[in-house]
């Protein structure tokens, strides 16, 4: 089963203590382990929200905005797509990412098109 790992920076998380970020493992080891094994299939760093470009089509007109749609302090700084047999494995992988220590990871399970809820059978 595939998961999108949204790598978030969370500067206003009250539970974040200085020691947490300091104890984060280096990213190189994570990349080597999971991209090396083929568990992670795609991912990269992203330019900051200030460089975001919004695109909407309204009334037939394409509207382009500079900057992000929402002004939240939390920002997506990168992403990885991982292939894991189950959620617990995905949690383990996410927990080893340095930004789980210095920020937060949001795991978003893939929802493949063409499989409706009734027939997904529960098996990954």
């Amino acid at each position: 089963m595939r998961y999108l790992m949204l790598v978030l920076s969370t500067p206003e998380d009250p539970e974040l203590r200085p020691g947490d970020a300091a104890g984060a493992p280096p990213i190189e080891g994570w990349v080597e382990k999971y991209y090396g094994s083929g568990t992670a299939v795609l991912g990269d760093r992203l330019r900051p929200p200030a460089d975001a470009v919004g695109v909407r089509v309204r009334g037939g007109r394409t509207l382009v905005t500079d900057g992000p749609f929402s002004e939240t302090k939390e920002a997506v700084g990168g992403f990885d797509v991982i292939d894991a047999p189950d959620l617990d494995t995905a949690i383990t992988i996410a927990g080893e990412h340095p930004m789980a220590h210095a920020g937060a990871i949001e795991l978003r399970p893939f929802w493949p098109l063409g499989l409706d809820d009734a027939s997904d059978g529960g098996r990954a």
Binding site: A84, D86, L87, D88, T89, A90, I91, L107, P109
Partner: peptide
């Protein structure tokens, strides 16, 4: 939807 498997969690968890 989230892929919770019927298993005993890994040691770290």
């Amino acid at each position: 939807a989230t892929g919770i498997a019927f298993r005993v969690p890994p040691p770290a968890q």
